[in-house]
Amino acid sequence: MTPRLRTTLLLAPAAIWLLAMLVLPLVVVLVFSFGERAAAGGYSAAVTLENFANLGARWTAFQNTLVLAPVGTALCLLIAYPLAYYLAVRCDPKWRTLLLILVIVPFWTSILIRSYAWIYLLGGQGIPKLVSLLGLGSPRLINTPFAVLTGIVYGYLPLMVFPIFVSLERLDKRLLEASADLGSPPWRSFLQVTLPLSMPGVATGCMLVFILLMGEFLIPAILGGGKVFFVGNALVDLFLQSRNWPFGAAVAVALVLIMLVTVTLYMRFTRRWAGGRDDVSLM
């Protein structure tokens, strides 16, 4: 067997799988988005831009996604950075691996089950009850944007911690010593050395979290109670309830386009001050 034939045969199953289950479905969505809704739901062939012209009908979903995804990403970053810093710089190296695994593990366990736990914590018998016992009134938390943001931070924090940790761990500690020797107080060393050098990790983490948030469905479905919904929730409604496939396909295409544009802009923007991107994935 020639090496070339061997390579082809080895790649064939993966290539067929990618073509049948990734390329074909994405092409079908693109084609459907220009089609018309059949009388009984589903698709009827046509070439029209009407579905895209109607996108405004789902404007609230796009608006929520475009506001809550960046806010959620920023919150994740604010909470994750100090933790990643602690793990990479401050904590006892003996415990580092264990503590890191403890951050990663929740990400790989069912987000569905972890999210619904917040129904307890944010529901009437949970945090609101504690707050009212303290005599601070009884705030309504579940089914609010706050609940959805809590779920988002809870769900995606590990994905933000990991890349930041990697870039902080790689940081050459001698640079910090040099900075201290030259008379910088610690906070200035942090701002001028540590923070800029950890930017690749920050950029990677933000991008990963942002991309996943753009397609979020479960957290708003469970903690938003139908009041706070993302594009993902609109898609479920369009495909499984109202069976308006062409319009749903147009919403999906618009979502992917928005993602592509933001990610491209973001990468172009960050490359300038991050100097290359850390390609790290979780695990």
């Binding site: 993966a14 290539a15 990618l18 479905p25 397609g215 469905f217 994935s281």
Partner: peptide, 28 residues
């Protein structure tokens, strides 16, 4: 091309993969 497809398979949101697979398979 192969790397790009792998990248897309990991990065495209599950919900988009889900709906596109649904309508593609039902159509086929």
């Amino acid at each position: 091309i192969f790397d790009a497809l792998l990248y897309i398979a990991v990065m495209v949101p599950g919900i988009v993969i889900g709906i596109s697979t649904l309508i593609a398979l039902v159509t086929v």
